[in-house]
Design a binder for these strands. Structure first.
Lengths: 200, 200, 200, 200
DNA sequence: AATGAATGAGATTTCATTCAT
DNA sequence: CATGAATGAAATCTCATTCAT
């Protein structure tokens, strides 16, 4: 339904510039500050030009969210293609630089139906992708575990990782190092690694 | 320091009414929607009356956040006083009704310095309180574990719980039941419960 | 017409406190800032109490203006009673501390009819009082001057004095020292002083 | 530095219309009344349009002040180019229509730092310009005077002129005619005019 | 492809004033 | 004497959006 609304070439440099400005404001000042006016000011463009490319605010927000998703996909693929996919996945999940945008987008999703749908669908796909990879790496071992499943593991890692990033942003640190050590140890056990990487 | 700003008795019914309206809007429409106008409309009051009780928007937000914290504290104490504190704690953490407000407040904290400070301090206290209780219940056993600590366990439960609530709100469910089952099983093992409660 | 409006004893300490606060705000922040709320805050009182003593803002403004007039009268009498009344008068006119309030009151008078009437009447009286004193001191000599009169001299001194203070407040200084020297020299000549005080 | 804030062409008719309305309100009701709402109403425009051209109230006030300065400059140049520059200058200084705006702007300057800076700089320039002209006309004679200088004379005329206008606005007239006569006589003497213009 | 102009809505805040106690 | 509660008006500013060029 949003297809017919797009104006301006998909590949336009100006378009990219606007999205980049929106992203920057999003991360630095929160979703509430991502107004077309502010985005225009940040990009050094006139407000009307922003509306020329993105008729409604939602159009801009969606474009931004999609770009973020594409980047997330790339990062995920790169992690899953690493020699030790599980560790790479965990590192991705505690990467605060990526998480700032993701978190803010999630907050936004709570209030924009269109965004919510996009985020939800994308999260589904990402989890499924992770499940595939985890199955590939740990399939045999998980079959032996009485309760742990690949989807469950994916969610657990995501939850703990996000908590570390979120609380870190708020300046909370109690238990952080302990939890991270426990995860690394646990992942070491799961992969049958008899010599887990020492704590960093 | 913000105390002197308060106008209107702490115990005023109107005051409580305003905070309740703000809370409702907060949960239903997000922190961005909690404007004085909207809060007033929701409470059936005039906007100026809201400003009479809460000179600035931040004053209102802070009052709301503090009320939420007081309630959280009560819930936590009740959980920790239960026969099986760990299970009660876990149930508290996946209670979506409480989490909705907490999550939204957390998002708000990212953009309001005053709120951030409050939330951060409160989270510290809550975690410390949980650590105390966990130590009391699992102290001996944790000493035997090579990596798990009480603070780490507290954070892990919080992270997984919050992920379940947050994703649930977005309509994402993959891995949820699996992760919850794993946590219950894990907690059962930690408490040495040979007969864990069946899945709910 | 304003008589019946006064509430609270004329001599009340609280009353004086309110007027003092209003004066301070007037001088520091200008007449636009002299709202009952701000005055109350400055005096450490509740806004309603200010309204209890001064039912309308104008009542407060009038009281303040009258207090300033009474003080001005005292200063003037003291100056006119000095050994060299003309010099004392001139010093009064370039006294910036008194002028700040007077100037701001004048600005206010432009927009409050009641104040305008008061100020106008008071200025009339003050000029008449000065004229009397000047006549007493310079009567004989002025009769010899082809154009200078006591009222004229009073106004000229007031005008130059006020310009020095006003421009001084804006940071303008060109010609200030020269003009002041000229006035002192002129007054010396007028009083027949063959040995005018050296420039200070 | 404030240049980048301007929105709307410098030459826009609407822009000029807004400034004109602000000026009128300024003169008639004082600087305190020059709110965007009132200005808009006076100009027959919507308040938001005023903000479109002048994002902040200060922007509008500055634009108005600058326009007034440009006009003052023109009047001054015209006066200084007259056959009898001193008399023309004096007439300019007692021109109440021009002075009303200038006075009000001065009052405003006391409370707006940006305006104060502008006014101060402009007054400096105007005084310097007058000094130049006075030097040209009276140079030789002033060299003979023991105390009078061109900057001093400029300030003295400004002070007396402004007092006449200001007090006239308040309805005060004592000494006015006398002072004006004295100034004319004095200027006649200074220019060596043996036949000063009769009183108007 | 871009932009200046315009507008209605709404947000935040301050204000003077009234009233009941 | 004093105060808490309430209210309508207004001020400043931001916003998304539309339209004509």
């Amino acid at each position: 339904m949003a297809v017919a609304r797009r104006i301006g070439t998909e590949s336009s440099a100006t378009r990219a510039q606007i999205i980049a400005a929106a992203e920057a404001i999003f991360i630095e000042e929160g979703y509430g500050a991502a107004s077309t006016r502010r985005v225009a000011a940040r990009a050094g463009l006139k407000p009307s030009l922003v509306h020329y490319y993105f008729p409604t605010t939602e159009d801009l927000l969606l474009a931004m969210s999609r770009k973020g998703q594409a980047e997330s996909d790339e990062w995920l693929e790169r992690a899953l293609a690493a020699p030790d996919p599980l560790t790479a996945l965990w590192q991705l999940m505690v990467d605060s630089s990526r998480n700032a945008l993701a978190l803010e987008t999630m907050a936004l999703a709570n209030h924009r139906e269109a965004i919510r749908a996009e985020i939800s669908a994308h999260s589904h796909r990402m989890r499924a992708r992770q499940v595939e990879a985890i199955e590939r790496v740990l399939g045999e071992r998980l079959r032996l575990d009485p309760v742990l499943t690949a989807p469950g593991l994916s969610l657990i890692l995501a939850g703990i990782g996000r908590a570390l990033v979120m609380e870190g942003g708020l300046g909370i640190t109690i238990g952080h190092e302990d939890a991270a050590r426990w995860v690394r140890h646990w992942l070491g056990q799961l992969t049958g690694d008899s010599d887990p990487a020492p704590d960093a």
